[in-house]
Write a protein that binds this DNA or RNA. Structure first.
Lengths: 138, 138
DNA sequence: TTGACATTCTACGTATTGTCGAATATATTT
DNA sequence: AAATATATTCGACAATACGTAGAATGTCAA
């Protein structure tokens, strides 16, 4: 499955989109130019390029656009966590549809590789969820 | 985050691509026409449409194309589980990059909703993985 | 009113997927 | 082998998504 090298299967957002959201998650509401400046530090892009993509994100509902004094302000419509949750939801569902156990196995693998400590977290989340379910049933 | 309605964020494969793989996972190696017939049962498409997409899947390395007697045969290059694992890997990674805990939370939620029994499975997978890690460390 | 700056519009390039018909290649049948 | 049928490949067009950015337009303050 070499294709991964090129781009990867379930990419969630485009590169610039991702960068913009990252900026917004890092710093609060910003105007277009500020976002642009931040991104500019790493890459050479035209202001309008950044603006365009911000606009598209707004259209998708991922960025909120509000009128500041004399300038529009943008902020992420969802928290980092919230967004990850939302998106995971969809992505995972589509993977679950292919194979549940495959997805589980790979989830654990991934987590172990990327952040083993989080395995603990996950354990307790599961425990909590199980209790929750029991309670709901009785 | 309404966009989901339209298409969804981390879609792994296109519709027809998915359908074709499903057919191949269900039945072993098939020739183009057989795959076509199967898909045809649900949707009205031209033979060449299906052929084209099969060909693209082959080019992506997701389908293996072999010479049968007088006809090419196609089969999935990866098992359902293997594929799910591979793909999850990538997709999850990109979500993890956004937020680890968000992804975890949503994973547990999802699993609980879709297949609560599997929560047990997951628990043991984690335990196993933890031991594995300990052993590796010493 | 004239600049300077902010915002929107329009547009091109590339990629991916769905969709096919036309052309070509490969059997099969006389 | 010629004719016919079947299989396979090619090339195309449409839609969508994303990156990219110049041109056009809008806004406000001096």
């Amino acid at each position: 499955m070499e294709k991964s090298a090129k781009e990867g299967y379930g990419k969630v957002l485009g590169r610039l989109e991702q960068e913009i959201l990252d900026v917004l998650w890092k710093s609060g509401p910003l105007n277009g130019k500020e976002i642009f400046s931040d991104i500019r530090r790493k890459r050479d892009l035209a202001l309008t390029t950044v603006l365009t993509v911000i606009e598209r994100l707004a259209k998708k509902g991922l960025v909120r656009k509000t009128r500041g004094e004399s300038v529009y302000l943008f902020e992420a419509a969802y928290s980092r966590d919230g967004f990850a949750r939302e998106v995971s939801q969809e992505v995972l569902k589509s993977i679950f549809d292919i194979s549940r156990s495959g997805a589980c196995a790979s989830f654990v693998d991934m987590l172990a590789r990327v952040d083993p400590v989080e395995l603990e977290e996950l354990s307790s989340m599961i425990e909590k969820k199980k209790k929750e379910l029991e309670r709901a049933r009785g």
